[in-house]
Design a protein around this nucleic acid. Structure first.
Lengths: 210, 210
DNA sequence: ACAATATGTGTACAACTGTACACATGGTGT
DNA sequence: ACACCATGTGTACAGTTGTACACATATTGT
């Protein structure tokens, strides 16, 4: 029998998750992946899959958790780098795009999961987005850029912002990673969307009161 | 050998497309459907599939075309029913939601296809959305509600509108079809999004010129 | 040191898959 | 009337799938 070569704990588990992610990155849809396929990609024997996951949905759920980490890292970086309010949106979008490029498979998985077949995964991703939106609202409150909006309206605005960016994700994933021109197109368009939304937010009260 | 019972031309073809759609409506992901599965659902023998489609992607493409028809019907209805400008958004959203409820599987397919594994389907749906957005822009121009926006900015606005509504689609598909309360929540939220966007559009020039 | 546990491998199998092929039959054009 | 074609059926088969089971080995706790 071949060598066992067990290493760090959780290493094979990671290999399986990376394998699934890698297949997604190659254009496959997560819902169409099979256990054998993933283990093959990971260089693991099929039955070993069950040592770590009950089924593919289970693996998907754990991927959502990791996705959460990626998003949080992104948020931290945005908070650290976006200093001037005037460039806030353009820079945030740039950071978003660079993170997507750096974690393409992860974000592909996220885009797929929003309309995926596992309700749990779907709910997980949605929940990550809600969290992201509420953090964004907190940041904006802290920066005192939106003093005229009440909490509910600010939450709505941030919700819309996050959705718009998430939708741009599908644009971004649709273009080749080295087509700098197209990527820049997505970037400017997304930035413009955000600006439009914030212009709306800036004048929102006046409408709400009229 | 069993009876042939051939009927109208294209009938079996429709049965196959409906079968695929029906499976999607039951929560399955299109990317995970197989030929045998679809033919089984349609009550057709597997090999008959090839009389109408080359493979599942082909079937998906044809579904996109039909989706286009559904969207156009929806547009026509909106144009006929939305008369007063002040209720424009709320009514449009209501019409959208009713069409989604009436064609749930179709819209599930659309939501899935945006991040699906067939590039062609993806592009097809995206193209339908672009068309929709440009028609919307034309309507708004005709109604002279947005005189202060140049063509490019109006197109952008409509693009954002269509995206926001499309994203709401995933919310809508996530709730039970008979949970009237939740559906109404989605409706008001979506309407508010659109209002926010149009408030932004109304004040856009002032920012663009500053 | 050594038993227990976690995690890997190999083998096995029934169920399912896509698709090739030959054949049957109903509708259509001449 | 009759040949043709589009479209249905049945059979076949090799390849893949999920998963059960027995077994091997490395790590851990005592």
């Amino acid at each position: 029998m071949a060598d066992k070569q067990r290493r760090k704990p959780g290493e094979t588990r990671d290999k399986l998750m990376s394998a699934a992610l890698s297949l997604v990155g190659k254009g496959r849809h997560f819902a169409s992946l099979g256990i054998r396929e993933v283990t093959r990609e990971a260089g693991i024997v099929p039955t070993s899959f069950y040592r770590h996951f009950r089924n593919m949905d289970d693996l998907g759920l754990q991927l959502v958790d990791e996705l959460g980490l990626v998003l949080r890292k992104m948020m931290r970086e945005a908070r650290a780098n976006v200093l001037q309010a005037d460039k806030l949106m353009a820079e945030s979008v740039a950071i978003f795009i660079s993170h997507v490029e750096a974690n393409r498979s992860f974000f592909s998985f996220m885009a797929q999961g929003l309309a995926g077949e596992s309700r749990a995964v779907q709910e997980g991703i949605r929940s990550e987005m809600r969290f992201f939106a509420s953090e964004l609202a907190n940041d904006l409150r802290r920066m005192r850029l939106v003093g005229h909006l009440n909490d509910r309206d600010l939450d709505m605005t941030c919700d819309l912002v996050v959705r718009s960016v998430a939708f741009s994700l599908t644009d971004l994933l649709g273009v080749s990673p080295d087509d700098a021109y197209q990527i820049d197109q997505v970037k400017t368009r997304t930035t413009r969307f955000l600006q439009l939304i914030f212009v709306g937010a800036a004048h929102w009260k006046s409408v709400g009161e009229s």
